[in-house]
Design a protein around this nucleic acid. Structure first.
Lengths: 200, 200
DNA sequence: TTTTTATTGACCGACAGTCAGTCAAAGGAA
DNA sequence: TTCCTTTGACTGACTGTCGGTCAATAAAAA
């Protein structure tokens, strides 16, 4: 046998090497040559590890998401109320520390919308389901603890999608310059409607 | 002197001539050559009327949107309750008759997210504000008529963005195959929370 | 050596966008 | 009427760029 490269690890290395490239530019303006230079490898080698540009974004999003989820999980565990948990859940859309992931997520949605290839739909679906179930769990626990009314259950998908909706409005228009206030205002309003009286 | 062409009209003609091309394919897969053939003009002529592919999509969206708004306005005027008006407002996301505009809107969001050029942000902002104000008016009238509680005012942007959020989830994932049910379910839940008792 | 794996950049085809040139209509001069 | 000139509309061959391929090479293990 010859050298055995840890393919998975090298994929991560290449992806991370050109993270700034993707964070600072949109996927359409980044070229494979730039990627190869950034990663210090030949253009052909890029294709040994990735089928196309999009796959690099997927890899990057995956890596950053795992790290992001770990931190988020901790923070949410510490939150006192369901309302607070939901608010923390949405900090992704405006917190400074998530800026890179957010920039990639933007590209990511853009790709998924314009090039609806099966793999992308599949990956996007996986991410969506993961976060939706997490979000469902938070709401479900709130209902169990009688913090919020069972009606919260009927708002899960709506509330969840609202985040992306506001995010897109904020990213693609001049409206909503302060998405943080907007999100928290909406959450507060909805929670004032579904929180039970006996909440602490 | 030579022939003077109505530039604005010809822009519309060219855009409409390649409508199907854009409806059936995503903007990235449509080529300028295809556009030229569809419109029965030379490739260079395309650039006499449009700066790039994106501009053609803008033109198309504008044309179809005007027609769409006219019809929607009629329907909403006929609706009995605020809840019904809101539901009709959201039919865009699933009604068969709006399928073409929806397909273009998808591309449109994708472009705005990945190529945030000033013109695009501007156009997107205009559309967003137009619909948001329309939506605000519906809610405001509902509050005036005491159909819904003043809290509805605090939910305007949230409710409004929810539509795009669900739309994207439905377009970019396998989740939410039935967006119609999902939207109406969410609207019903929220309205059951903000509708006043004295509603007819 | 030989085999296997990793790497590479020259190469190719496709595409967006340009531009030098063609064409047709209109007006004016004779 | 005829012919010449002007001018805007139109064109497709051409150029540069980019994504993606592949034959050649390197280099380690057997």
């Amino acid at each position: 046998m010859a050298i055995i490269v840890d393919k998975a690890q090298k994929k991560k290395d290449i992806a991370l090497a050109c993270k700034d490239l993707f964070v600072q530019n949109s996927i359409n303006t980044v070229t494979i040559s730039q990627i190869a230079v950034s990663a210090g490898i030949g253009k052909g080698t890029v294709y040994e590890y990735f089928k196309n540009k999009e796959e690099i974004v997927f890899e990057l999003v995956t890596i950053l998401m795992l790290e992001h989820n770990r931190k988020k999980e901790e923070k949410i565990a510490q939150a006192a109320s369901t309302r607070e948990k939901v608010k923390i859940f949405y900090t992704f859309y405006y917190h400074e520390e998530d800026r890179d992931l957010r920039a990639l997520y933007r590209d990511f949605i853009s790709i998924s919308l314009s090039a609806p290839k099966e793999e992308m739909l599949h990956f996007q679906t996986e991410c969506f389901v993961y976060y939706l179930q997490w979000f469902e769990k938070i709401i479900e626990e709130g209902i169990e603890k009688k913090e919020i009314s069972p009606k919260g259950r009927d708002l899960v998908k709506g509330l969840f999608s609202l985040g992306d909706g506001l995010f897109i409005a904020s990213a693609a228009t001049h409206v909503l310059p302060d998405i943080e206030t907007e999100i928290n205002h909406t959450i507060d309003t909805i929670f004032s409607l579904i929180e039970t009286k006996e909440k602490k």
